[in-house]
C-alpha cells in the first residue's frame, strides 16, 4: 500500500528527512513517533504528494509519488494536525465541498453515513465554528474518510481532545484498521501508539528503529527480574550474586533488579537460593521497560532543533 525507498527532503541546505525506508501493508496501523522537528509531517506531506521529495522514491496504492500525484491524492485521506475546517460552513456543507472536489456521486448518502458513524448527524446543519474541539476533530475525520481512501494519514488525531473524545477517535481508528485500510499515525502519544499501532517507527530525520512495541522494548532495553526481600543479609546477597551469573545487577533497599532476556528461567532458581539462605522473599516481578523509555533512549530527552517547525 505504501512503500518508500531512501526517501529524503531538503529545504535548502537543511535536511528534514533523510534515507527513509518504510513499507505499510493494508490493515496495518504504522506509527511514526518522534520529537518535534523529527520529520514526521514532512514525511506525510511527501507521501501525500503535497511536497516533492528531493531524494528517493515512494509509491502509494501503486501510484508513484511525483509521477502520478493526482492519483496519489485520490487514494489518500489526510487528517492534518489542526482540523482546518471552514468555520462559517455547516458540518454537512464542509463535507459536501470536499466530496465535490473528489467528484463523488452518492454524496448525500456518504455524508449521512460518516456523520452518523461519528455521532454528528444531529448537528449536520450547525456551523463548524460552533463545534467543540472533539466535534471538530470528528468532522475532520469524516472529511478524511469521505471518499473511502485505501490509505489514511493521521497526524496527531487525538491531540487536545478530552479522554472520552480521544477514546471515540481511537476506537474509530481501530475500526479503520480492521476494515483493511493502511494507516500512518503520527503521534507524540506513546500510549496511543502502543494501543493502536501494529508497528512503530521511531524517527529523527530518518527511521531510527522500527518494530512492534514489544520487539522495540525487548530489543532496546530488555526485561528486568525484580526480587524484593525483607532483610538483606550477607548470605542472601551471596545467594543473589551467585544465582544471576553475569547478568547486570542493581540493589536498592532489599530490592534486587536483574537485567535478563529470560526472567522465567532465572526466577525459580533464584527464589530457591534465597529461601535456602534464610531470606524472606516478599515479591518476584518482571518489569518491562515502557515504550517511553525506549523512545527516550533512542531520541534523547532533549528535542532536536525544530527544523520542521521552522518550515
Amino acid at each position: 500500500m505504501i512503500r518508500a525507498e531512501n526517501l529524503g527532503k531538503r529545504f535548502g541546505d537543511r535536511a528534514a528527512v533523510e534515507a527513509l525506508d518504510l513499507e505499510v501493508a493494508p490493515g496495518e496501523v504504522f506509527g511514526l513517533l518522534g520529537p518535534n522537528g523529527a520529520g514526521k509531517t514532512t514525511t506525510v506531506r511527501m507521501l501525500t504528494s503535497l511536497i516533492a521529495p528531493t531524494a528517493g522514491r515512494a509509491w502509494v496504492n501503486g501510484h508513484a509519488i511525483g509521477a502520478d500525484d493526482a492519483a496519489v491524492r485520490r487514494s489518500v485521506g489526510v487528517l492534518t494536525e489542526v482540523p482546518g475546517l471552514y468555520a462559517r460552513l455547516t458540518a454537512a456543507e464542509n463535507l459536501r465541498f470536499f466530496g465535490r472536489l473528489h467528484s463523488l456521486d452518492d454524496l448525500d448518502a456518504r455524508i449521512r453515513r460518516f456523520l452518523t458513524l461519528l455521532g454528528l448527524w444531529e448537528r449536520r446543519d450547525d456551523r463548524a465554528g460552533s463545534f467543540s474541539k472533539g466535534m471538530r476533530q470528528k468532522l475532520a475525520i469524516a472529511r478524511t474518510l469521505l471518499h473511502d481512501p485505501p490509505v489514511v494519514f493521521l497526524d496527531e488525531p487525538t491531540a487536545a481532545l478530552d479522554p472520552s473524545a480521544a477514546r471515540v477517535v481511537r476506537d474509530f481508528i481501530a475500526g479503520l484498521r480492521d476494515a483493511g485500510r493502511a494507516i500512518v499515525l503520527c503521534t507524540h502519544n506513546l500510549d496511543e501508539a502502543q494501543r493502536l499501532c501494529n508497528r512503530i517507527a521511531i524517527m529523527q530525520r530518518t527511521i531510527l528503529k522500527v518494530g512492534t512495541a514489544e520487539t522495540l522494548r525487548a530489543e532496546l532495553a530488555g526485561d528486568q527480574l525484580v526480587v524484593t526481600i525483607r532483610e538483606v543479609t550477607p548470605a542472601a546477597r551471596a545467594a543473589v550474586v551467585g544465582g544471576v551469573g553475569d547478568a547486570a545487577l542493581t540493589e536498592v533497599d532489599g530490592r534486587f533488579a536483574i537485567a535478563t532476556a529470560a526472567p522465567d528461567a532465572l526466577a525459580p532458581g533464584l527464589v530457591r537460593a534465597l529461601v535456602a539462605a534464610g531470606a524472606d522473599v516478599l515479591r518476584v516481578e518482571v518489569e518491562r521497560p515502557s515504550l517511553e523509555a525506549v523512545y527516550l533512549d533512542l531520541v534523547g530527552e532533549a528535542a532536536p532543533a525544530d527544523a520542521e517547525d521552522a518550515l
Binding site: 491524492r73 485520490r74 492534518t80 482546518g84 470536499f98 472536489l101 472529511r143
Partner: peptide, 12 residues
C-alpha cells in the same frame, strides 16, 4: 485558518 492543507490534499 489551516484549511489550505486539506484542500491541497484533494485532487484539485
Amino acid at each position: 485558518t489551516r484549511s489550505l492543507e486539506p484542500l491541497l490534499a484533494t485532487p484539485v
